[in-house]
Design a protein around this nucleic acid. Structure first.
Lengths: 345, 345
DNA sequence: AAAATATGAGCAAACGTTTGCACAAAGTAG
DNA sequence: CTACTTTGTGCAAACGTTTGCTCATATTTT
């Protein structure tokens, strides 16, 4: 049978509460008993039962991470693990564990959130999503459960979120192309459902306007499904459009890789004939030939910051003294343009 | 205040135990009360407290996933998320959640395992590791806690594990090169600490022997650190060795990418001058130029199977009726050679 | 020296479930 | 009609902690 706090108490000749306070490092315990108890805990190789602790203290020290409904695809993305690593790292520092859900449908997602929040399993959740209308967000707000979104949310003012400045990312990339002398720049991967792409697209448009270049709808390639790959997008693009871009901005490195493959197969060389850039700076971007210009989004920091925000909110919930108006914060993680061969002449 | 099972009981005019049994779908509850209770649960929007449930039932319905000490690197690897997806998928089907640890040192790893196992936080753990001597494994065996290893373990007979047949992977890759007419085939990325690479290397040697080709130590490139990349490995290889391989088998696609970059920079074209293959079939392998020959290891299945094995063991622990000799199983997930341009003449 | 405060430790009530046991009512067999 | 089984429900003891009170003793203040 497991050894419990009572066993320790008995052997040390103190009450269970004293043992508990020793563990919690309560100030009102004499160092004599503290050491005595600790010694016995070592001897008996005692480890506290986290579940019981959670039940009594009403805090599980676990934070949930909800992966978007379309997990299939996103999970694969190299940017994802980085995010997780950032989350895990900070969480660990604060003594929190992370519970991840890998649901495949929006319905499952809602179930999971309810389980996590109402079930008392987690103290707060991080949502990895940037869907335009996320039903889970509404749910969380409704039950006023601590949460943070990674990726800008539409209900900006009612939630905490952390994200890159995707507008600027789009803007800077576009400006980079313009400075290289391009004026027919295609935008690959606009997807109305995902704010990231919309924001980047707006940055793209703004940059063009600021430099007196008209926005040509023909040069915009929408991606309907998350599973679309750059190769096929380019294929339909060249089949249905008459324009010849000299530069392509892809919303993601993986899209860029696919696009380049298509271009190569059709006698177009990068960057000689067409310059291509992506976003996310996946590890392979540097090894690709040609090496791919991309934007480092610092996924690790996104995750790390999200946890900090979340924990701040979680703790606030406990120390709720003077009733205060709840404030929401948005944090922007800086991104950095990394110029490589694919856009060099 | 949260609404509990007692509130439901009171409102339904039954005892808490009855409500509990309704939730558990206990056979001895009349369908009349069952429906009555369920209706009230809906009305009051009741959701059971998982923590309390775990405490009472001594099962948390959570499985832990321990990521190797050197998480930094492995986390990044595309094969990792796939694994997680497999784990999550099966876990979800069985009503389990997954708690992941992202520790950075072996000491932290041990702490986490103890917390997971002794702390009652998880019902079982999956170890993603293939270190030759893993201290965590010893720990888990000692406390006879259910666990499964992904990646063959040295203490084969005392643990459950699931893995690919890495010997065969090495063998088949090598044979593929031989059939293409190569005889000076380099092996890139042997790392004595990791069984995966050792197994693949043994397969490589066996294939050479079977085809009457002597094994040349000069052609073996060891990788000391997990952070070594293919580019630098090739660099030191060409600086210190006199042999000129016509084929290179890399233990991993990422290594292969790096190697190819080095080769290209030094006037060697793939596959014309040197054929190169990797393992893991990362998504980018198909888009790389040249597209990279690789081995699909079915990471999703690895994860899925690991969970099945683990749950079998967890349940066995509960239904322990007739004392039986404990049996351990090893499961091999098939891998598939995918030939692409990088090894085609 | 009395009063006030600080310190150290224990009691017992939570926390929200599950589950073995008991037991009444209803059904079945002889 | 009696004895036995089945069915449906309740009681109360776990599960292993935390924590608000209480209270004795020790220390400081006036």
């Amino acid at each position: 049978m497991r050894i419990t706090i009572k066993d320790i108490a008995k052997k040390a000749g103190v009450s269970p509460s004293t043992v508990s306070r020793v563990i919690a490092n309560h100030p009102r315990i004499s160092s004599a008993t503290k050491h005595k108890v600790m010694k016995i805990m070592k001897e008996l190789d005692y480890h506290p039962n986290m579940i019981a602790r959670s039940l009594a203290s009403k805090a599980s020290k676990i934070i949930g991470v909800i992966i978007p409904g379309t997990a299939e695809r996103s999970f694969e993305h190299p940017f994802f693990p980085e995010l997780l690593r950032g989350i895990g790292s900070v969480a660990y520092q604060h003594g929190y564990n992370i519970l991840i859900s890998s649901v495949t449908s929006l319905a499952e997602e809602k179930d999971t959130i309810i389980q996590f929040a109402r079930g008392g399993i987690t103290d707060g959740v991080i949502l990895l999503t940037s869907r335009v209308r996320d039903p889970s967000v509404a749910e969380l707000i409704k039950m006023s459960f601590p949460f943070v979104i990674i990726g800008r949310s539409e209900q900006e003012s009612r939630v905490n979120w952390v994200d890159n400045d995707n507008f600027s990312i789009g803007y800077e990339l576009t400006e980079h192309f313009i400075k290289q002398g391009h004026s027919r720049i295609a935008f690959l991967g606009l997807s109305p459902d995902f704010l990231v792409t919309v924001d980047r697209f707006n940055g793209y448009k703004q940059a063009l306007q600021d430099h007196g270049i008209p926005v040509d709808e023909e040069l915009v390639v929408e991606s309907q499904f998350v599973t679309d790959d750059g190769y096929h997008l380019m294929k339909t693009f060249y089949q249905h459009r008459s324009v010849q871009p000299t530069g392509i901005i892809a919303c993601d490195d993986l899209l860029a890789f696919g696009a380049i493959k298509y271009l190569n197969e059709h006698g177009l060389e990068v960057p000689r004939d067409v310059a291509v850039a992506g976003v996310n700076n996946v590890p392979q971007a540097a090894y690709f030939s040609p090496s791919l210009t991309s934007v480092e989004i610092n996924a690790f920091s996104l995750g790390a910051k999200a946890v900090e925000l979340l924990l701040a909110e979680v703790n606030e919930k406990y120390t709720a003294g003077v009733p205060q108006a709840r404030s929401y914060s948005r944090t922007i993680i800086p991104a950095e343009l990394i110029v490589r061969d694919s856009t060099r002449r």
